[in-house]
């Protein structure tokens, strides 16, 4: 026992030492030993990965904090009282909540999981997942600027997002089971009442840290995949298929899925596609991307049961795809 304790501490000391060594000297010695310019693609994957990581990590952490806060400080009774009883009212309440909550996709998933555990109905949770990344002022602003010539993209994005939320919410309400949340093994404090105030704060820190590391490692895997696609995907080849509405929409949704852009930045990238793709396909990119992408799905895997994740992915894809085809038809007829 004593020996084990020492090895543990020794290991940590060694890690700390290595960490500090790399912190002070990493950029002095390593670039001489490994010349990254020999592997330009690998180097670019690393750069893109680090960019994606640094951009998202503050929001992942914020999500962990919010989730722990709900876990420890908001009781189930309060939530039960706040949620409307009728499913349709609950869905609209969730849309309204998404408008107010200023977070995007990285932060919302752990929060929704916690809310569902606390008794929020699954359909309301799904509506939050779908709408929170799109319905906020920053996303409206960037979409407006990127598509100044074509405001129907902005309106289309908002309308399609709300419609998707309502349809998906109703579908989940009618067909799905309640048991969707993955039970976490690391749930230490639940069920053990610590009545001292200070220990409540300690468990808040514990929860935040554990939640962060649990969601974070899935995020890292997703971000790595996304960076590989970012670097190796040839965007000019795809322009040839762009004029076919069905193929083009499916393709744009696929691109949005693998690129894993942040919802406040994706409008500019979409604008760079806008000459080679039809408006309906651009909408597919803008509506589907924030709701689902590689890093998102992996974060969802950390929070929800696999069967639910699969249902959710298929449902959202089908709904967004058909809505985009309809919207594309309407826009090209000028009926928007």
């Amino acid at each position: 026992m004593l020996l084990k304790r020492y090895t543990g501490n020794l290991l940590l000391l060694i890690l700390l030492f290595l960490l500090l060594a790399f912190f002070f000297l990493g950029d002095v010695f390593i670039p001489k030993a490994i010349d990254f310019s020999d592997y330009p693609m690998l180097h670019s994957v690393f750069v893109v990965f680090l960019g994606l990581f640094l951009e998202s990590i503050p929001f992942l952490f914020l999500g962990a904090i919010a989730s722990s806060f709900i876990q420890l400080f908001i009781s189930e009774e309060i939530i039960q009282r706040m949620i409307p009883k009728r499913p349709l009212t609950a869905i609209f309440a969730a849309v309204a909540a998404a408008l107010i909550i200023p977070v995007c996709e990285c932060a919302i998933i752990p929060v929704v999981r916690r809310l569902i555990q606390k008794g929020v109905p699954v359909h309301a949770g799904v509506v939050l997942l779908v709408t929170a990344p799109i319905l906020n002022v920053i996303v409206f602003g960037s979409t407006y600027y990127a598509f100044q010539n074509n405001p129907s993209i902005l309106y289309g994005r908002i309308i399609l997002c709300v419609l998707t939320a309502i349809i998906a919410g109703l579908f989940i309400h009618i067909f799905s089971t309640k048991d969707v949340v993955k039970e976490d093994k690391v749930e230490l404090v639940q069920g053990h009442e610590h009545d001292i105030q200070s220990s409540k704060w300690t468990s808040f820190i514990d929860h935040t840290s554990q939640e962060f590391f649990m969601v974070g490692r899935y995020f890292i895997i997703g971000a790595l995949f996304a960076s590989v696609f970012q670097v190796f995907m040839d965007r000019s080849v795809m322009a040839d298929i762009g004029q076919a509405p069905i193929k083009g929409t499916a393709l744009m949704m696929g691109i949005a899925f693998v690129l894993s852009l942040c919802s406040s930045a994706d409008a500019f990238v979409a604008a760079s596609f806008s000459h080679s793709f039809l408006p309906g396909s651009i909408l597919g990119f803008l509506v589907f991307g924030p709701m689902l992408d590689l890093k998102n799905v992996l974060i969802m895997m950390s929070c929800f049961k696999r069967s639910f994740v699969v249902t959710y992915v298929l449902l959202i894809f089908a709904v967004v795809f058909s809505l985009c085809l309809i919207a594309g038809g309407l826009i090209s007829k000028g009926g928007f």
Partner: peptide, 10 residues
């Protein structure tokens, strides 16, 4: 990510 942040300069 930690190591990448420490060693990359370009």
């Amino acid at each position: 990510p930690i190591l990448l942040g420490f060693i990359l300069t370009d």
